[in-house]
């Protein structure tokens, strides 16, 4: 037996050795091929057996953990998917979107911003379709007319397609960072001056 094998063997067994007596442990290490003493053979077999069941238990625990983790991830994903639509797409998909939460992108219509108590009312538009918005959160300081925004929220319930009315409720307005160097994204809305943001 090479040096290396001994080392591995020692390490493998060290967990069990602590429970057996010192002499026994040395005995096991010295000869892995069996002992003249049958009692010792019985003991090694017992150890082997407990090791196997330990391994089986480990696999079972690992399986349960992986399954639980996978389930959590699946749940998390399906609960957190937010569709991202431009205004025209959102209005077209009203029946399938219903009152579920999604993100909608559009440009704040000039002169449409009004304050009503704690709410901010305005409209956004994309590709010729306009959607009235009710914001119950606090708009970020960058918020102003004529800029592209992304809103997180949902259609109001009503009697239209998908049980909705044509009003979008949001409490989260994100102003898209404008960058000179940003290239056009197919879904991106153009600003008035023709630059894409």
């Amino acid at each position: 037996m090479s040096d290396r094998d001994t080392a591995v063997f020692k390490n493998e067994d060290s967990g069990e050795i602590t429970t057996a007596s010192e002499d026994l442990a040395i005995g096991i290490l010295d000869s892995s091929k069996g002992f003249p003493n049958t009692d010792l053979n019985l003991l090694t077999k017992k150890i082997e057996k407990s090791k196997k069941s330990k391994k089986r238990r480990l696999i079972a625990v690992a399986f349960v953990l992986v399954a639980a983790f996978g389930y959590l991830m699946y749940q998390g994903l399906t609960n957190s998917i937010q569709y991202f639509k431009t205004v025209d797409q959102a209005v077209a998909d009203r029946s399938s979107l219903g009152t579920s939460t999604f993100r909608v992108e559009g440009m704040v219509v000039d002169g449409s911003i009004r304050r009503d108590g704690v709410q901010t009312l305005f409209s956004i538009s994309a590709n010729g379709v306009t959607l009235p918005i009710v914001d119950s959160g606090s708009p970020p300081s960058l918020f102003q007319q004529g800029i592209p925004v992304v809103l997180v929220g949902h259609f109001d319930s009503g009697s239209g397609p998908g049980g909705t009315s044509l009003t979008f409720e949001t409490n989260q307005i994100m102003v898209k960072h404008s960058n000179v160097y940003i290239a056009e994204h197919p879904n991106r809305v153009k600003a008035q001056n023709g630059t894409s943001r």
Binding site: L72, M73, Q75, G76, L77, N79, S80, I81, Q82, Y83, F84, K85, T101, R103, V152, N187
Partner: peptide
């Protein structure tokens, strides 16, 4: 992956937070 199926989606905060 979803955009390959034609949907533009994003994964919201609850997913990351809950895990």
């Amino acid at each position: 992956v979803a955009s390959a199926f034609g949907d533009t989606i994003s994964i919201g905060r609850p997913y990351y937070d809950s895990l």
